[in-house]
Nucleic acid binder design. Structure first.
Lengths: 185, 185
DNA sequence: CGCACCATGTAATGCGTTACATGATTTT
DNA sequence: AAAATCATGTAACGCATTACATGGTGCG
């Protein structure tokens, strides 16, 4: 799946594995992320499959840059994936919910501590989507005007992040109060 | 991590791998799931580590049942995990959002078709959390009254599912309308 | 007649993380 | 003086999925 994220980014313009990682961290990280090591091995595999090609740009005093770009076959592969509909819900994993599910065995204060900590983390993330991400999208669309249509969809995914964090904060609030009331000291 | 889900369930009462899978499907599947094959191999490993023990119950005309239960070491391991706070946000993956992010390259109608399909799936899931899950929790607490405290936290995780699906439906609605307006025929 | 349920497991493969290995330049 | 940025990769390991392998009972 990382495969398609890489093809998607490289279809905007050619770049290195290192640059791909920083773009992903700044944009898709909320719903798709990867470590550098995985990015490098995946890029190599995609080149072997003929979906990417690379060119080495020599540099002084630094490792040479290996710049990847999408081949015609790669573009077709990306388009094919974009057109395939998702006919089922994605299974998800959330370790916090798993802990909450079994938390009765650990006692009230333990759960509450954990939920309050999560509340701070999600509030901070919510703030990030509200205050940092819009400017990032505007800046990118400003820099590459041919990507204006894409900007609309980037904004849609940012909005998902915002709504998700709002929902999470609300649930944490609600749950903290319910636990406080239900297990009085 | 599946490890802790298995320890958590088996700490309620002993059961087989097959039964673990059906409990998980009915309850934690929304935030934690596993295939039977993985459950069987993990149970085996946990027994080797001394966190579980198993007893074989012979059956006629069917494969013998292997019933697992938690050892003292297993209970400690579970408690230890429950007490460890999660100090970071969980990275998540959502293939639909990845598609939406890159969807401009595939055209308006392709995205809309996909979003409308997802809307139906999420509406159905929302209905499930509202209409089916509460009865399941009540039934279980009724059957095992010593799990009343646990019931409160099961309800909290169900509520997260409900809020999540409400949020997702709202976002899909919003996004579908925005795309319809922004790319008029 | 076919499908779902009960019940167990192994083998191959793929996806992802952590650790290892290197090293100059720029910013705090 | 330390940390972040730029820049590349390999190796070992762990977690998860898919496919393989078996087979009786009960329901519609």
């Amino acid at each position: 799946m990382l495969k398609y994220a890489l093809l998607g980014f490289l279809n905007y313009f050619p770049m290195t594995g290192y640059e791909l990682e920083s773009y992903m961290s700044a944009t898709t990280a909320y719903f798709w992320h990867a470590k550098l090591s995985q990015i490098y091995t995946t890029l190599k595999k995609l080149e072997e499959e003929g979906l990417l090609r690379s060119q080495v740009e020599p540099q002084e005093e630094r490792p040479d840059r290996r710049v990847y770009s999408v081949t015609e076959a790669g573009r077709k592969e990306l388009l094919g994936w974009l057109q395939e509909p998702l006919t089922e819900l994605e299974p998800k994993k959330d370790a916090l919910l798993l802990k909450v599910f079994f938390a009765a065995q650990a006692g009230k204060e333990t759960v509450l501590t954990q939920l309050r900590l999560q509340l701070r983390l999600h509030e901070r993330q919510l703030q990030y989507y509200r205050e940092q991400t819009p400017a990032l999208i505007e800046r990118t669309v400003g820099e590459f005007p041919q990507l204006a249509d894409d900007g609309l969809l980037w904004e849609a995914s940012r909005r998902h992040g915002e709504l998700y964090e709002e929902m999470y904060v609300r649930w944490l609030d609600e749950t903290i109060h319910k636990i406080e009331e239900a297990f009085p000291e």
